[in-house]
């Protein structure tokens, strides 16, 4: 059963069309939105987080209609949201900030609220910095604080906008672990422009480009679209849409291979490059 159903969603800001007739479904597990900066991922996630309403289209979240105020509140009670530019009251300590968000999540009973804050602090490995001011934390730790506040109340739907952006490799691995854990038994919708994160975490993906969903399906289905279109050579091929020299010294070419090319198995990144590089490419919708 789908926790998130978006059908024909469009959203414009003035003359800029941020989303154009987008469909998306997401159920338990991690669903990833992949796309370049400015593609419309954040707008779509804001709609799923009930922060924005679409100009057109239908949205159903957790079986409810967010355009109705009473149902929207019910959705928000079971929703966790990490915005792309999650801001903090920098003078707050980690505990104070998460406690503040817990109040916004209507946890008004002090003792129970503090117990819940302690739970998410432990869940995200922030115990040792719980009493530290947020302004004294590294970017990675702040991102964890953002995830911790999103996990308050054990939400059934978790919306994460670029959760791994700006993190070093070790922090990204730790974040992947936490998101993977969060995706067990609940629906997580996250955006990224890092294909490695999507490959590692997501059971379903949607590639968003110029406000449109260019592909929806599994990572394997997207990768399969690049089968027979990736090859190695001693030099950059003129036929390649993209080519780069690998650590072994050979060129990895992505595009339409010449006859006799040494084909290699594609990756998700190859398929993504092909999808982005060929606007007219016919894509499958599964």
């Amino acid at each position: 059963m789908s926790t998130v159903r978006v059908h024909g969603a469009s959203k414009s800001f003035g003359r800029t069309k941020a989303l154009d007739n987008v469909d998306l479904e997401a159920g338990p597990g991690v669903t990833g939105l992949l796309g370049p900066n400015g593609a419309g991922k954040t707008t779509l996630l804001r709609i799923i987080a009930t922060v924005l309403a679409p100009d057109r289209g239908q949205v159903t979240l957790l079986g409810r209609d967010p355009s109705r105020p009473d149902e929207r509140t019910a959705i928000r009670e079971r929703l966790g949201y990490l915005p792309q530019d999650a801001g903090f009251h920098r003078g707050f300590t980690v505990f104070e900030f998460i406690d503040y968000v817990a109040i916004l999540k209507q946890m008004t009973e002090r003792r129970a609220r503090h117990d819940e804050v302690r739970r998410v602090v432990a869940l995200t490995g922030l115990e040792s910095v719980s009493a530290k001011r947020i302004r004294a934390l590294s970017g990675g730790m702040r991102r964890r604080v953002g995830l911790a506040q999103a996990m308050l109340g054990d939400p059934a739907l978790l919306v994460l906008d670029e959760p791994t952006v700006g993190l070093d490799p070790e922090q990204r691995l730790r974040f992947r672990e936490m998101i993977s854990h969060a995706g067990e038994g609940r629906t997580v919708v996250m955006s990224s422009h890092q294909t490695e994160d999507i490959t590692a975490l997501c059971s379903r993906i949607a590639v968003i480009h110029q406000g449109q969903a260019r592909f929806t399906g599994t990572p394997a289905e997207l990768t399969a679209q690049a089968a027979g279109r990736v090859w190695t050579d001693t030099q950059r091929s003129p036929a390649a849409l993209a080519a780069w020299r690998t650590g072994e010294g050979a060129y990895r070419n992505v595009g339409d291979p010449p006859a006799g090319a040494e084909l290699i198995p594609p990756t998700l990144e190859d398929a993504y490059l092909l999808l982005m590089g060929e606007p007219e490419l016919e894509v499958s919708h599964s």
Binding site: R76, P83, G87, L104, K105
Partner: peptide
Amino acid sequence: TREIGLAAP
């Protein structure tokens, strides 16, 4: 925290 607040109940 405005955006977080707007997504809260």
